[in-house]
């Protein structure tokens, strides 16, 4: 039977070495995906990922049995926003790198679907559009970006996003609305482009 998040955390606090690994595997892709979209940089996202689970490990005893996913994303958001705020003053790492960029293996921008792989013109167009989208998302204010990534890419409900960000659902909707209105001006029209 699938163990609940709470029971895994309890087991981890109790010294079960497997439990923490299970939690990391269960939410790893989701958290890393969130952090990659927040930072626009795989390497940085992995740093934040480690930092996030380090805090989960250290603060696990404070988890009171609410929704673990929200609690986890709250930590990840805090790690990302703190670091990005610091980075804003001191932009050390470019945000232009591909999300698929990992240590020693940096995918080309605009990795394309198999359907497009043999059409260089299409590939280039896709890469350009993808870069345009990435830039548009990166240029959003941090809270709007966090809201968009959580709600759109991580598919959290608005109340869940509110819980993660520690604000009201109304605030989340306002942030989301602002983000989308900004994006509506900046995103490319992808009619006819295979997604």
């Amino acid at each position: 039977m699938l163990e609940t998040d709470k029971s895994l955390i309890d087991a981890h606090i109790g010294g079960d070495k497997e439990a923490f690994g299970e939690l990391v595997r269960r939410y790893g892709d989701s958290v890393l995906g969130y952090l990659v979209r927040m930072t626009g940089n795989r390497e940085q996202a992995e740093d934040f990922f480690q930092e996030t689970f380090k805090r989960v490990h250290e603060k696990g005893h404070t988890f009171r049995g609410e929704r673990f996913k929200s609690w986890l994303f709250t930590i990840a958001t805090r790690v990302a926003i703190d670091a990005l705020r610091k980075r804003k003053r001191q932009p050390v790492v470019s945000l232009n790198q591909s999300a698929g960029c990992s240590e020693g293996n940096c995918d080309e921008l605009g990795a394309v679907t198999a359907a497009n792989c043999c059409d260089p013109a299409r590939e280039a167009e896709m890469a350009e559009q993808k870069e345009q989208v990435r830039r548009a998302v990166e240029q959003l204010p941090t809270k709007q970006r966090a809201t968009l990534v959580l709600a759109y890419y991580q598919q959290l409900s608005y109340p869940e996003v509110a819980e993660v960000l520690g604000c009201s659902t109304g605030t989340v909707k306002v942030q989301m609305s602002r983000a989308l209105r900004t994006l509506a001006q900046r995103l490319p029209d992808v009619s006819g482009v295979a997604k």
């Binding site: 892709d29 890393l32 999300a99 990992s102 345009q132 994006l183 995103l187 992808v190």
Partner: peptide, 18 residues
Amino acid sequence: RFASLDLLREEVKVSEDL
């Protein structure tokens, strides 16, 4: 326009090393 957001929806996988 918003469909273009899906261009960033590629799956991110955590490596086993990480």
